[in-house]
């Protein structure tokens, strides 16, 4: 794990020093850039998560709509599958997951030539339509509200996005937590329009319970290919640190996604 961290840091340092170009949207993190009013984006981002107690799969259909240039409303409808370890005695299954309503509002924007800095307020309302897995971003089976601030500085030479948020569970069946994400994108091709991009992503995540010592730090490495209005992406997420129980502890997650801009 230490080697992975060193390798990643080296890549970041080398990347920052090289002639890097523009990048696209982060894969597992978020960014505050919006693509203009009346735009519709249809996305999927399948996650196959392996952890102590089994294998979980989440296949969401995400429809994002921008009513204005600085606001976004989205609906995420996931299908989830749980395949437990045979000796645990848990029952697996497949069903509709938790439906989520996402709202974003960009309240700060500062533009320069080929660069921009923006901040958005973001909230996700989780509806308990899925099974009670109690799993982060997969299926809580519980009412939950996530509120965060996402900031991003993007130029055609560097791109950084950061998010700080709070997850609140009204039922108190699950622990409230603080979350943070940090993402870096390294484009491998010259910025051109229409889009023809291959991007490399480095994304870090922190999840810290405010009711216990439970903490998890993850690292995701992603690759993205964008041609015209279609984007294909894949990422792998691994834990850097976790003091969660064996059953809850992430082994790895694989993400495969597509997005199309209408």
């Amino acid at each position: 794990m230490k080697n992975l961290f060193i390798y990643t840091t080296l890549l970041l340092v080398l990347g920052a020093g090289s002639n890097v170009k523009a990048q696209g949207p982060p894969i597992t993190a978020d960014k505050p850039i919006m693509l203009g009013s009346k735009t519709v984006i249809v996305k999927t981002l399948t996650e196959i998560r392996s952890q102590g107690d089994g294998l979980y799969t989440r296949v969401p259909l995400m429809i994002h709509y921008l009513p204005t240039s600085n606001s976004l409303v989205a609906l995420h409808v996931p299908y989830v599958n749980y395949d437990p370890n045979k000796n645990d005695g848990n029952e697996g299954g497949k069903s509709l997951g938790d439906i989520q309503l996402l709202l974003k509002y960009q309240f700060f924007r500062r533009d320069w030539t080929a660069k921009t800095f923006r901040i958005v307020a973001k909230t996700i309302q989780n509806f308990p339509t899925g099974p009670e897995y109690g799993l982060e971003d997969l299926s809580y089976g519980d009412w939950a509200t996530y509120t965060s601030i996402v900031a991003g500085y993007e130029t055609i030479k560097h791109g950084i996005s950061a998010e700080l948020g709070y997850q609140y569970h009204a039922s108190h069946k699950l622990e409230n937590s603080m979350k943070a994400k940090l993402g870096f994108g390294l484009p491998l091709l010259k910025p051109l329009y229409p889009v023809n991009q291959i991007n490399l992503y480095f994304e870090y995540g922190l999840d810290k319970s405010v009711e216990s010592d439970n903490t998890a730090i993850t690292y995701a490495q992603g690759l993205q290919y964008a041609k015209g209005r279609l984007t294909l992406e894949a990422a792998i997420k691994v834990p850097l640190y976790s003091n969660q129980t064996y059953e809850e502890r992430l082994r790895n997650s694989i993400f495969i996604g597509t997005r199309y801009i209408f």
């Binding site: 735009t39 660069k115 910025p191 229409p194 801009i261």
Partner: peptide, 29 residues
Amino acid sequence: DGLGCPFCAYGLEKKMKDLKGMKKMTVDM
């Protein structure tokens, strides 16, 4: 100002296309 990535140009082109008759749009990132 603010075109930090090629994806940004999509939103711009989409809006410019509302101007009926717009042709041969190019964007230098």
